[in-house]
């Protein structure tokens, strides 16, 4: 079996740093989301520690995501074939392959995920800074931030649940792509045909 490099070391490093920071921020965020979930704070260092570290985890998540954004923003632009792909996404979800255009390095669904996560992270960062310093931030901003922050977090989390499902269960081989950076030729041809031909020249 031959292998193709799918993600460089820099891509994998920024992805996993952001993922770890995201997970800490997400679980501690859930702890602060409702008193019923506050027990989660005990798992992640206790209430005061969670209050102190959640913003830092969020900040490092945003920085790592920023690295990914700089690297990928251009190739994440949706083209006309992506529009066709999106219109056929119901077929994709049912694992029907006929009628769906071949994807480049990222398919249109992944591109949508990228923009969804980038946008929600942007709003999370802005509102998060406001919530971080309640004694400094003006009340009017805080009143908006306490709504924007959980709302964007919810959008982001729903997206991440899908992302997690796709990578661990729905598309075998994608975890290896992000961990070791390599995929088999058959995998590349099956899931990202256009990218396979670009890379191999076949």
């Amino acid at each position: 079996m031959k292998f193709i490099e799918r993600f460089s070391f820099a891509e994998r490093a920024s992805h996993w740093i952001s993922a770890l920071c995201f997970l800490y921020a997400a679980f501690t965020g859930l702890a602060l989301w409702s008193p019923r979930l506050f027990w989660l704070s005990g798992v992640f260092g206790g209430g005061e520690t969670v209050r102190a570290w959640h913003p830092w985890a969020g900040l490092f998540f945003a920085i790592a995501l920023g690295v990914m954004f700089r690297r990928w923003a251009k190739e994440m632009q949706l083209d006309e074939e992506d529009q066709v792909w999106l219109s056929k996404s119901a077929l994709y979800a049912q694992n029907i392959e006929e009628g769906i255009p071949e994807s480049g390095r990222f398919n249109a669904g992944q591109k949508m995920m990228f923009w969804l996560q980038s946008a929600s992270a942007f709003f999370l960062l802005l509102s998060g800074v406001v919530i971080w310093f309640p004694e400094v931030a003006p009340r009017s901003l805080r009143l908006i931030a306490v709504l924007v922050h959980p709302a964007s977090a919810a959008v982001s989390l729903v997206g991440i649940i899908v992302h997690f499902y796709m990578s661990t269960m729905a598309v075998p081989g994608s975890m290896g792509a992000m961990v070791r950076g390599k995929v088999s030729e058959g995998w590349a041809r099956s899931h990202h045909g256009k990218w396979y031909r670009e890379v191999t020249g076949r």
Binding site: M1, K2, A93, Q94, N95, M169, A170, V171, P172, G173, S184, E185, G186, W187, R189, S190, H191
Partner: peptide, 12 residues
């Protein structure tokens, strides 16, 4: 629907 399939890894 189960997982997505990867085709003919062994052929090429």
């Amino acid at each position: 629907f189960g997982p997505k399939e990867t085709h003919d890894d062994e052929v090429h």
